[in-house]
Nucleic acid binder design. Structure first.
Lengths: 141, 141
DNA sequence: CTACAAGTTCAAGTGAACTTGAAGTCAAGC
DNA sequence: GCTTGACTTCAAGTTCACTTGAACTTGTAG
């Protein structure tokens, strides 16, 4: 069993963040008699997945939703994890595709001089249909 | 000259956001006698660039810094704009490269079972060296 | 036994990019 | 002349993913 500092050092994630993840139900801990947290080694893989998923662009809420697909009664196997990650590959591909569109737009569309918002397909309102509601909007779409 | 609603409709950017951009010095307006904003058509291209740059991953502050490279005394030409965007292509390429690394990591690294945070090169602390300071961290790096 | 490092909870702060609300002014149609 | 809608400013609220600080308790090395 690992202390919170152990986990923090091995994962590169701050202890405050680990407590935060726990509060959000993304990870769990047992307690020593003192009230201090004790983590099983399996938590490291779970945290790795959180970090990974974030870099791909999932929010903590989405990550939590993914985790409900894991078996609750046992430590997840390699198969369990890879079932989850299958969906993510699709997401990465979409993101790469968008970036490639943007990239070709930079050379073509600016080159052709059409970068006026109402005509250019790269920066028109239709592309922004997904943006709604308050708060910061990530370019992830 | 366009009203704020004209610009909002043509750009897909809310009027509140346009006022916000103006406050941040990203766009400018003249005023009608009434005090209402009036925009020259050239503001549309400027806004297109803001939207574009955001989808690539630049912050408003970075976008502002880019804009200082534009001529202050005249409406920017096509050449002026494309000089700016040259840098962005590099940035997109880096981002695509990272996503491709993540993508191959999903199949290879999880397949091989090494996704324990301290051994896997895809989710280790070294990759997170750039993350520091408070606030949300975007996966842009 | 005493430092002091490491742990705890809970409330409040942070930064980015806006949005929302209040309270008031201005313009256009009937 | 009046209503309706568009516009103004300014302050405060929102989301996300945390961090920071206060006040306190536990564990460990000398």
């Amino acid at each position: 069993m690992l202390t919170i500092t152990d986990v923090s050092r091995r994962s590169g994630v701050a202890s405050s963040a680990l407590r935060f993840y726990e509060e959000r139900g993304l990870i769990a801990s047992e307690r020593a008699g003192s009230g201090h947290r004790r983590y099983p080694r399996s938590v490291l893989r779970r945290i790795a997945f959180i970090v990974f998923a974030q870099r791909i662009g999932l929010t903590l809420e989405e990550i939590g939703a993914e985790f409900t697909k894991l078996p609750a009664d046992r430590v997840p196997s390699r198969r369990d994890w890879s079932r989850l990650s299958g969906q993510w590959t699709k997401r990465i591909d979409q993101r790469i595709a968008e970036l490639q569109r943007l990239r070709s737009g930079l050379t073509e569309c600016i080159g052709c001089g059409c970068l006026s918002i109402d005509r250019c397909s790269l920066a028109n309102p239709a592309d922004m249909a997904g943006r709604k509601g308050p708060g910061p909007r990530y370019w992830l779409g």
